Amino acid sequence: MKLTENTIFITGGTSGIGRALAEQLHAMGNKVIIAGRRQALLDEVAAAHPGIEGIALDISDAADIDRVAAQLIRDYPTLNVLVNNAGIMPFDDPSGRVDDAASRRILDTNLLGPIRLTSALVEHLKAQPRATIIHNTSVLAYVPIATNAVYSASKAALHSYALSQRFMLRDTNVTVQEIAPPWVDTDLIKKSGDPRAMPLDAFIAETMTGLASEEPEVFVEAIRALRDNPGLGEHALVHAFNQSLVESPIPV
């Protein structure tokens, strides 16, 4: 994507990767609007970075998405970049009974939220001289973590959706990029300072370079081996990955 002179809407923009992207893109001269469920956090980011604006949005609520999309089209006619970043990552255990309500929250937030929001804005984006849709998935889209099975599945589904959407928009001025983060030290689960987690500032720096390259998929070099899913060796890879976490679990 072009990294300057955009009008950008970022969901989940009050913390973690979303906030860091918002701050970096704002510093580069873009108009940035962030979304989140809590108005107090939106106000906090806006106060810390004058010029960033916030809109309260429950990304899991289809009616709220329609409301906010209409507001964006009305108030920000030059909107040309959508960053579907909001996500939740509850733990589950697929070896036993999985809580249905929790699974629905994950899918409504991580998968249907981006699908609904993109659908509500895509005709507006097509009308811009140049536009970009960015989906924030995860390395767990390729190598799932067994303790967050529904989360991993939601990200795999969003990756698949991005592939289809990119093809269907091939003859338009809208490009689709995907960010596939590794384990980044944010509060998605719990900010812990674990040395296995990539520092947020390092992740953002590498990601911005990738976004500028116009590559369809942006991932940091550290996860290349996991991204290069080894075909029929996938089962052994996923088993070994999860066994390593059993032996040295992520702090929670």
Rank of each mutant, 00 (worst) to 15 (best):
L117E: 10
R166L: 10
T118M: 11
H135P: 08
N173S: 12
Q165M: 13
M168I: 10
A156C: 07
S160I: 03
S154C: 07
A149R: 01
A157W: 05
L121W: 05
L163K: 13
T118W: 13
L112W: 14
Q165E: 15
A162R: 11
V150Y: 07
Y151W: 05
N148M: 14
P114H: 10
Q128I: 00
I133T: 03
I145D: 08
L169E: 00
T137R: 03
A149S: 06
H124C: 13
Y142E: 06
V150H: 11
H135K: 13
A131V: 02
A141N: 13
A127V: 09
L140P: 13
R170P: 01
A120V: 11
V143S: 01
A131Y: 09
V150A: 05
P144E: 11
H135M: 09
N173P: 04
I134R: 03
Y161S: 04
T132E: 15
N173I: 06
T137E: 10
K126Y: 11
S164T: 07
P114N: 10
S119I: 01
I115R: 09
S164M: 08
A149C: 03
R170C: 06
P144G: 10
N173L: 01
E123G: 12
R116V: 15
N148Y: 14
L117N: 07
M168A: 14
P144T: 12
I133V: 15
V139G: 08
V122Q: 14
L112M: 15
T118D: 12
D171G: 05
H124I: 02
N136A: 07
N148L: 15
V122I: 14
P129T: 11
L125C: 07
T118Y: 08
V143F: 02
Y161A: 02
R170D: 03
A120W: 09
N173W: 02
L112H: 15
Q165H: 13
Y142V: 13
K155T: 06
A146R: 00
R166D: 00
A157T: 13
P114M: 06
L140W: 11
S154F: 07
E123Q: 15
A162T: 04
S152V: 00
Q165F: 13
R166V: 02
A127G: 12
S154T: 11
R166I: 01
V122F: 14
L158P: 02
S152Q: 03
S119D: 12
P129N: 08
L121P: 01
I115F: 10
A157K: 00
D171Q: 03
R116L: 15
K126M: 06
N173R: 12
L169R: 00
M168S: 07
T132L: 09
L140D: 05
Y161K: 00
N136E: 12
Y142A: 05
V122C: 06
K155G: 02
G113D: 00
A162Y: 04
V122W: 06
N173D: 11
L169Q: 02
A157R: 07
M168L: 10
A131D: 02
I145L: 13
Y151V: 02
A146E: 10
H124W: 14
